[in-house]
Design a protein around this nucleic acid. Structure first.
Lengths: 199, 199
DNA sequence: GAACAAACAGAACGTTCGGTCTGATAAAAG
DNA sequence: CTTTTATCAGACCGAACGTTCTGTTTGTTC
């Protein structure tokens, strides 16, 4: 049987899209199931038909987000020649995909101790996947001798913290300012780890 | 009347101390009034006798925290000679005083739209007071010609974001690792904005 | 069209939330 | 001792929470 599977519901996607935006805007706890169904025009029964719980829905969103982010980056990475350029590219990529709000909601989620530890761990796994992308660029730069010899893991932590921290400015700043801020930050960071020419 | 005011209750301080820790650990929303009174051994009536609301209590904690942070820094600042050293000092100061957890709870608080806008604004004011401390050191460094001529405000944003972002690593890392990470980050940052000697 | 399951709606459930209210207690003031 | 007032306790409230339940619609298969 080819089985024309009832067309896999757009409803699920709609609920996912709406709740992603709500979680990003208001955070995990402050977003209620009621909010989500009101904004998606669906119903509770329907939401719980497609997702097994609020936490499950959230995890689904995080994983989807990270996978997309990585996939999109994979398509763009070759456009940048050097590791330094790639870091600028990653900054743009991070701003454009609005990864940060959801990532911050994930931190809030993980921090609150009522959360199911199994799901928390899966979220950490997803976050680490993203950090790995940064780390591989850093390592490439070190191997290239673009960057100074250093502890790549530590430097990655710092870079990741920088980008995550900048994401918090998204409410106060315009998109263009935010982008500019990211580039300045990456420039400072690059100066900071650049090979010293003479000295 | 000298009025020996019933010794201003240690209870208030106890509630403040306990709730500060809970908010830091679990975030604002995930910490309930019930949690606080259970951990402080007090009662609801008592809590609401000393604080007018949960939001009011939170604001009280933020302001107290920021004021203490600034006060302590004022006592330490003169120990550092250059602007660069001061930034390292600020990093230590930030790690030691565990400012970040509460600050992150503040971001969660501010982000959730149900919060009283008046209180949100007062929290922003408090946060900006902290940023100003960083900014004045940056400006000092620029005036000194320790740092490159640059947009001090933007650089301050970046530095603040960096420190805030690093604070998020506090759950995964030991205190010593966290401190080391902060120093490396400041070093990279300083390299990034340092005067170029020759070039 | 009969049978079935997926997709949906929304009432209802038990719990927990922040906040209020009525008093009890105890220390200071007269 | 009596009055007053800050301090405390905890029962209680309506609202909101995440989740479950029952039932209806709708598309697919025979």
């Amino acid at each position: 049987m080819k089985v024309s599977q009832r067309r896999t519901s757009e409803t699920k996607k709609r609920i996912a899209a709406v709740s992603k935006e709500l979680f990003s805007q208001k955070g995990y706890l402050a977003t209620s199931i009621e909010d989500i169904i009101a904004a998606s025009g669906s119903s509770k029964g329907n939401l719980y038909h497609h997702f097994k719980s609020k936490e499950g829905l959230f995890l689904y969103l995080i994983e989807e987000q990270v996978d997309e982010w990585i996939e999109h980056w994979a398509k763009k990475e070759h456009l940048y020649a050097t590791a330094a350029e790639k870091l600028h590219g990653l900054a743009d990529h991070s701003v454009d995909d609005f990864q940060n709000p959801l990532i911050q909601a994930a931190e809030e989620f993980s921090g609150s101790q009522t959360a199911d530890p199994v799901i928390v761990e899966q979220i950490v796994v997803a976050t680490n996947k993203q950090r790995d992308v940064f780390q591989s660029v850093i390592q490439e730069g070190i191997a290239n001798r673009e960057f100074e010899e250093c502890d790549g893991k530590q430097i990655t932590y710092i870079l990741f913290a920088l980008v995550a921290g900048l994401g918090a400015a998204r409410y106060e700043l315009e998109l263009n300012e935010l982008r500019a801020l990211h580039h300045t930050a990456i420039s400072v960071f690059l100066h900071g780890i650049a090979k010293k020419e003479k000295q």
